[in-house]
Nucleic acid binder design. Structure first.
Lengths: 148, 148
DNA sequence: TTAGATGCAAATAGTTTGCATTTGT
DNA sequence: ACAAATGCAAACTATTTGCATCTAA
């Protein structure tokens, strides 16, 4: 782990490679799947209690700007969860009933990305694809949401 | 406007068609593009000052569960913006530098959605596709983010 | 050496809750 | 009539800010 390429992306973008940043990135890379900011704060504190909360939030913002992670809403509207975007992208299905998330790999969006870059004159570095629906378990539990 | 089909979706799902819900939905349908919760609160208050903040948040949660709207992070990590998903889906490009969003229509994800439904036994009702990158203007302004 | 980043703790939002009252069906 | 939803305002929680100090380059 401690993937050097991601730390390099920080330096290449002109940011210092500090202890706080290294630990935060490490925590997220170590943990599989989504993490809330609270979980990240806890994990960081347990690895190095000298790191302040503010630096954790500042690092999350930075990593988001670099498209290394992405905040998303899977549960309520108050607290986001952060996901790592391993190769600049991430895809999942969110059950709107129980908030379970199912991750999947291929999306076949490469060609769409290229088209958009040409069409809008932007340089794309990543993407997030979220599907919403009712998972199998909730469906069986009898949710009233079948009509169009 | 005041699209009856969306109000019907509320009733069909077993929810009462209240004034607060109607106004909130109306505000979002009227406004083009993304809105922050603060903007929604303001707009609702100016249409009917008797509607309480709590009801607005409760309605936003409800509309999110029904996949009528979707909260996303385009700016910092504190405040989400809500987007209407006209036909159950929405697609945009977010500039990670200036937070401008560019919306686009076609995504060609219908077949992927069908495949996922079969593969994971879920019933999908919508999706959100976000691309991240640097917009033309920010690019020209000389952002240091060109290397891999 | 020095601009950039940190940690602290206080300030600031933003969101949720409990409960009596009102309202849609 | 009655369960569901509301509005209020207080309680919470999460995030941000300012500034002196520290540190990576």
């Amino acid at each position: 782990m401690n993937n050097p390429s991601r730390l390099d992306r920080l330096r290449d973008a002109g940011y210092k490679l500090t202890n706080a940043r290294t630990v935060v990135l490490n925590v997220i890379e170590t943990h599989e799947g989504h993490m809330t900011s609270a979980e990240i704060l806890d994990a960081v504190a347990s690895r190095d209690s000298s790191i302040g909360r503010a630096s954790v939030f500042r690092t999350l913002d930075l990593l988001t700007r670099l498209a290394i992670i992405r905040p998303t809403y899977t549960a309520g509207s108050a607290t986001p969860t952060y996901v790592l975007m391993p190769d600049g992208h991430h895809h999942h299905i969110v059950c709107v009933q129980c908030h379970q998330t199912i991750e999947f790999e291929d999306c076949g969006l490469g060609s769409l990305a290229e088209r958009l870059e040409g069409e809008f004159g932007v340089k794309l570095t990543g993407h997030l694809l979220e599907f919403y629906g009712i998972c199998g378990a909730c469906s069986e539990a009898g949710v009233v949401d079948d009509e169009v």
